[in-house]
Simulated assay, not measured.
Amino acid sequence: MKVPDREAPTERVRLDKWLWAARFFKTRALSAEAIDKGRVSLNGQVAKASREPRVGDTLEFRQGNEWRTVVVRGLSAVRGPAPVAQQLYEETAESLARRTAAAEQRRLAPEPALAQTQGRPTKRDRRTLSDWGDRWSASLDDQ
């Protein structure tokens, strides 16, 4: 008895696993969290973690503070080396231009809060500052 030939099964992989395997997120839990928060859309629709991307699908997601748009070029459920992971997708030209413009903007006008090297003064620092106030004055009469 001969078993009928069947099509070779196409590789199926969950979206959260694919994002992790393509090295967009450090852990699968982080990729699932981003999907749950609605930061990932597949072909223009908000995606669920169990969606299965196909070759040619367009993915748009937020990674950190930047939005990325990629086209799926391959499927994999295992996380491999970075050169292999980069073959799973192709970033669109618009996405690359947006990321380049954002990097240039951060370089030219950095966030003022990032220039702060120290946080709140400690109790000891506050005492020192209050002692300074008793001894120093900007008035011309005190000189």
Rank of each mutant, 00 (worst) to 15 (best):
L108R: 15
Q45A: 15
D16H: 05
P53L: 11
S31C: 11
E90V: 03
S50Q: 10
L19S: 04
N43V: 06
A93T: 08
R12A: 12
W18C: 07
F25D: 02
T117R: 07
R126M: 13
K17C: 00
A97Y: 01
D16M: 07
V84R: 10
A103K: 15
R135I: 06
K48E: 11
A8R: 14
R124I: 06
A8D: 04
W136H: 15
D131H: 07
G119L: 06
P121Q: 01
R126F: 09
V55Y: 01
E94R: 13
T27Q: 03
V55I: 15
E111H: 07
Q86D: 07
R12Y: 00
R12H: 11
A101G: 07
E66V: 08
T10D: 10
R106P: 00
R107G: 09
G64K: 11
A138S: 14
V46T: 14
A138E: 13
K26C: 01
F24D: 01
T100L: 12
S95C: 12
T128M: 12
R28I: 02
L108V: 04
R54E: 11
R73D: 02
E52C: 12
A113T: 03
R126I: 14
Q63H: 13
L30P: 00
A85F: 01
K123A: 13
P110N: 07
S76G: 07
Q143G: 11
S31E: 05
Q63T: 04
S139I: 04
E60C: 04
A82R: 10
V55Q: 02
A101C: 05
D141S: 15
R99D: 10
R68N: 03
A115N: 01
R106V: 08
P110H: 03
G133A: 12
A115H: 06
R28Q: 09
G133L: 11
F61Q: 07
D142P: 02
Q63D: 08
R39N: 08
G56I: 05
R51F: 14
R12P: 01
A113K: 09
Q118H: 05
E11A: 14
P81Q: 12
E33P: 03
P53C: 10
S41G: 00
E33Y: 04
V40S: 05
P112Q: 06
P4D: 02
E60M: 12
N65D: 12
A21G: 02
R23K: 10
Q63C: 09
G133C: 09
L88G: 01
R99S: 13
L42F: 08
K48H: 07
R51N: 15
T92I: 02
L140A: 11
D5I: 13
T92E: 06
K2P: 08
R120Q: 03
E52K: 13
Q45W: 11
D5A: 15
G64P: 06
V3A: 06
E90D: 06
